[in-house]
Design a protein around this nucleic acid. Structure first.
Length: 426
RNA sequence: GUCCCCUUCGUCUAGCCCGGUCCAGGACACCAGGUUUUCAUCCUGGCGACAGGGGUUCGAAUCCCCUAGGGGACGCCA
């Protein structure tokens, strides 16, 4: 792990922390680098000035450097001529340099010729990216350079430098870029959804994010999509990466996230839910006094989460999904209400339901289901005609976890009193 | 403008290197059913693509060329 912080303006400790934490969150660690150490340090480019100076001197000794406007330029070899540059709108000096051949692991043979000398050191004495990148790669013993395709055109610069230093370039692999989900162009730092921190903050499952990213530009060649990292590592191969750019699709990420939530151990789900709902006060914001909770409430919380794990799509959705479990002061959603109450005779059904539940001695799923089935058999109304209004009465909304589980977890007392209250308002 | 890369369903992709088994397979999304009828789960089905044009060939998604489109680079940013 090398930190490329040659641009003083943009580098802060905060930015570094975010990068390191983001990497670790995704499950990626490093055996050499910041906070770990290693034989090739320092791992911050801002601390490697002496190395860069020494390498600049080597190029100077080989007469490949000259100064212009206070900056140090790399001198390309080849015939020089002046031409009007339609991009810069002025005359510039160009060089007929030999094309550099890049044997890219993903794109195959790519040939490109640099045609202008480029800056190595800025006027302020700091080296630029292209230079430090090459120097670090060769002094740190880098064997593979795997980076975005946006660097493919820069690679001819890097090859020129490797050649000037008399070393063989590392293996290159230019991977496809991620395009933004809406609008043209590549996804960049300022785009919605482009920062790992965002998924951390929104409590995505890190494995889901990592899994989704792996699927952008790569596939195991069979139909598998949800895969453990070990399996991906086992199957992974540079040439198997696509060369075309991929558009980011948050819907699919969300699908994978839901699958990971569903499949994770219950304890992990409960912990993630707790961290968000209690730790980050998501329930407090809904007017629920979690600070007053004791052991009983904690057990109840766990039961609620066990019930909801298979149904909820994200931790983000959890507050709205479960708030009614923890307060009697839940709103009856108007849309849901209109939708549910317009069909059949909800009041009659709810009254029957109330009566039947009152006489039930167990609130386990099976007897509850048997009760509803019996009710339906007797009246000729579908079970849905009982279930829909009851769910609305108990939760205020028309979606949620398994209906019978919902009643079991709420328990007789809450169920009956909520039904009574709802019936009074009907 | 110059140079580089890319082009299979709306999206992510399999197939392409080693032409026939592909009237192109899977997944997300969407739509319709089903789970002896709760729902945002789950299951089944549907919709839906080889960018266009020329070659080569008995035969092309697969090989070649052109065009178009997309992306990238051209910073004393990284």
């Amino acid at each position: 792990m090398r930190i490329e912080d040659t641009d003083r303006e943009r580098n802060t400790d905060e930015a570094l922390k975010v990068i390191l934490e983001g990497m670790r969150w995704l499950g990626m660690d490093w055996d050499e680098g910041p906070e770990v150490g290693g034989p090739c340090g320092p791992y911050f480019q801002s601390q490697r000035s002496a190395i860069y100076q020494e390498h600049l001197d080597r190029l100077k000794a080989a007469d490949r450097v000259y100064e212009k406007d206070g900056a140090m330029y790399f001198r390309l070899e080849g015939e020089r001529y002046t031409a009007y540059d339609n991009y810069r709108k002025c005359d510039v000096e160009k060089v007929k340099a030999a094309p550099q051949v890049i044997d890219d692991q993903i794109r195959g043979r790519v040939e490109r010729a640099e045609e202008q000398d480029f800056v190595l050191f800025r006027r302020n004495g700091e080296p630029v990216f292209h230079f430090v990148n090459v120097v670090d790669d060769l002094t740190m013993g880098i064997t593979h350079v795997i980076r975005g395709e946006d660097h493919l055109s820069n690679t001819s610069k890097h090859c020129e430098l490797f050649k000037a230093f008399g070393v063989k370039p590392p293996v290159f692999a230019h991977i496809p870029l991620i395009l933004k989900s809406n609008g043209p162009g590549k996804m960049s730092k300022r785009d919605e959804g482009s920062l790992v921190e965002e998924y951390q903050r929104r409590r995505f499952v890190p494995e889901a994010v990592r899994n989704y990213l792996c699927l952008l530009g790569w596939s195991p060649k069979d139909d598998r999509e949800k895969m453990e990292i070990d399996e991906i590592i086992r199957l992974f191969d540079l040439p198997a990466i696509n060369s075309n750019n991929a558009r980011f699709d948050e819907k699919k990420l969300s699908f994978l996230n839901a699958a990971y939530l569903r499949d994770m151990p219950a304890e992990r789900f409960v912990k993630a839910a707790w961290d968000s709902l209690v730790g980050e006060r998501a329930l407090t914001e809904k007017g629920i006094d979690v600070d007053a909770w004791g052991d009983e409430e904690r057990r109840y919380f766990e039961e609620v989460m066990n019930l909801c794990q298979e149904k909820v799509r994200s931790i983000e959705d959890l507050p709205d999904f479960v708030a009614y479990f923890f307060t009697e002061d839940y709103r009856i959603d108007e849309k849901a209400s209109t939708k549910v109450l317009k069909k059949g005779e909800p009041k009659a059904r709810l009254t029957e339901m109330r009566r039947a539940l009152e006489g039930l001695d167990s609130f386990d799923e099976e007897p509850l289901e048997a009760t509803v089935t019996a009710l339906s058999g007797r009246s000729g109304a579908s079970t849905g005609e009982y279930i829909h209004p009851t769910r609305l009465a108990l939760s205020g909304i028309n979606v949620g976890p398994s209906f019978y589980g919902l009643m079991r977890v709420l328990g007789r007392e809450r169920v009956l009193s909520r039904l009574d209250r709802f019936l009074e308002r009907l």
